[in-house]
Amino acid sequence: MYHTNSKREFSIKFQPQMQILRPSIHSRRANLIVKFQDLYGFAVEGNVDDVNILNEVREKVRQQGRVWWALEASKGANWYLQPQVSSLTEGIALKSSLKLSTLANAITLKRLIRKGIPPVLRPKVWFSLSGAAKKKSTVPESYYNDMTKAVEGKVTAATKQIDHDLPRTFPGHPWLDTQEGHAALRRVLVGYSFRDSDVGYCQGLNYVAALLLLVMKTEEDAFWMLAVLLENVLANDCYTNNLSGCHVEQRVFQDLLVKNCPRIAVHLEELEFDVSLVATEWFLCLFSKSLPSETTLRVWDVLFYEGAKVLFHVALAIFKMKEEELLLAHHVGDVINILQKTTHHLFDPDELLTVAFDKIGSMTTNTLSKQRKKQEPAVMAELDQRLRRLNSIKMDDLDK
């Protein structure tokens, strides 16, 4: 059970392995729908093949967990923070007493994270590697509790929107969609809206903060993860009033799509398809509304370590995986349906991340920064033009 005290924790019970059903006829397998809860309590609906994929993925998670625990045992609880480990390059062996020495000698921290952080270790590893722990250490220990008490009862445009969005955030979830879950999520979101008045609150942050709560277990840790995400990990101004940063990211993504998936880009242009129709939600909610939760969290594993470039890799991978099908689409609605169906059933994060990092061209933080700066003037001019049109409409209404 979750308590209002930010230092208390709530627990999510791990679901037992799902039974693998084996109907004799393939068509029956494909049409047989199974409903169940995933690792973080979300309702999932899929066919028998989806269930089998999830079982295989969870077995991989268990195997990967053994590697992490072995490293913890041999190198210490915070081995991943040691400079000599984090600075290792590809191909340099890790010195350890692991029985799985062949595997251990071939991996680096980056590759380990891309293969997935075990759910039990995820809160600790995220908090350390993202910079959240360092950010929290710069303020008094009572910062979060003092802030939540200080803003309690205050009403702003942000708090009104937060209250409106709470019941719409993952409805039906066994903890988030309860009075207790709403209260915890509200404290995190309202607290941050006062910490950064430029951001305040933006729709999309409710889904991000909700998933952070489920992973981090405490409000305070979820709050600091949200802070480091908005202040250090993501591009500037993604969640400000005019969403200028998000518009810039869309322009950059469009350019990357042309470069990495030229056939798709040409076809989508012919259909007059705007990538923002799907990518806006991907970038604002960080895939939390689009991908299954366990796949989303694998993306976030890499996001908190490698930065916002991961979002572009994953977005491009989704298009790349369905290239042939997208090329046969005749309408904008067909494209949206293909992409939504694909994301909702991406139960295998390894499949997605393999495409994202092995079949998509490499991109660096510096390269993305240059592309963002290139797009910023055009985006700001466009937003300014929209604002002028809006003001013009308002003045015309007054004249009537």
Score class of each variant (00 low, 15 high):
residue 1 M to P: 07
residue 1 M to F: 07
residue 8 R to G: 08
residue 12 I to E: 04
residue 14 F to M: 13
residue 15 Q to I: 12
residue 15 Q to H: 08
residue 17 Q to A: 15
residue 19 Q to M: 11
residue 32 L to V: 06
residue 40 Y to W: 15
residue 42 F to K: 04
residue 44 V to F: 05
residue 54 L to S: 10
residue 61 V to H: 04
residue 66 R to A: 13
residue 67 V to P: 05
residue 69 W to P: 00
residue 71 L to M: 12
residue 74 S to F: 11
residue 75 K to R: 12
residue 76 G to S: 07
residue 79 W to D: 02
residue 80 Y to R: 01
residue 86 S to H: 10
residue 88 L to A: 12
residue 96 S to R: 07
residue 98 L to D: 07
residue 98 L to P: 01
residue 116 G to N: 05
residue 124 K to Q: 15
residue 126 W to G: 12
residue 127 F to V: 11
residue 136 K to W: 10
residue 139 V to Q: 04
residue 141 E to L: 13
residue 142 S to L: 10
residue 144 Y to E: 06
residue 144 Y to W: 11
residue 145 N to Y: 05
residue 151 V to E: 07
residue 157 A to T: 11
residue 157 A to I: 08
residue 161 Q to H: 12
residue 165 D to T: 03
residue 165 D to V: 03
residue 170 F to L: 07
residue 170 F to Y: 15
residue 172 G to L: 11
residue 172 G to P: 04
residue 177 D to Q: 03
residue 178 T to M: 08
residue 179 Q to A: 09
residue 181 G to R: 06
residue 184 A to C: 13
residue 187 R to Q: 05
residue 193 S to C: 05
residue 194 F to A: 02
residue 197 S to V: 02
residue 200 G to M: 00
residue 204 G to T: 06
residue 205 L to C: 04
residue 214 L to Y: 03
residue 215 V to L: 07
residue 219 E to W: 06
residue 227 A to E: 04
residue 229 L to A: 10
residue 232 N to V: 12
residue 235 A to G: 03
residue 238 C to N: 12
residue 240 T to P: 05
residue 241 N to C: 05
residue 246 C to W: 00
residue 249 E to L: 09
residue 253 F to H: 11
residue 254 Q to K: 13
residue 256 L to F: 02
residue 256 L to T: 05
residue 257 L to D: 01
residue 260 N to H: 14
residue 261 C to R: 04
residue 266 V to M: 10
residue 267 H to W: 02
residue 268 L to Y: 01
residue 270 E to P: 07
residue 274 D to N: 08
residue 275 V to H: 12
residue 275 V to A: 14
residue 275 V to C: 15
residue 276 S to E: 11
residue 283 F to T: 00
residue 285 C to H: 11
residue 302 V to L: 12
residue 306 E to G: 06
residue 306 E to D: 15
residue 310 V to A: 08
residue 310 V to D: 08
residue 312 F to W: 14
residue 312 F to S: 10
residue 313 H to K: 09
residue 322 K to R: 15
residue 323 E to H: 03
residue 333 G to N: 11
residue 336 I to P: 01
residue 336 I to C: 00
residue 337 N to W: 06
residue 338 I to H: 05
residue 349 P to V: 09
residue 350 D to Q: 14
residue 350 D to T: 15
residue 353 L to D: 07
residue 361 G to V: 10
residue 362 S to H: 12
residue 366 N to D: 12
residue 369 S to K: 15
residue 370 K to H: 09
residue 371 Q to F: 06
residue 371 Q to W: 03
residue 372 R to I: 12
residue 378 A to I: 09
residue 378 A to R: 13
residue 380 M to N: 10
residue 381 A to N: 13
residue 387 L to N: 00
residue 387 L to E: 00
residue 393 I to A: 02
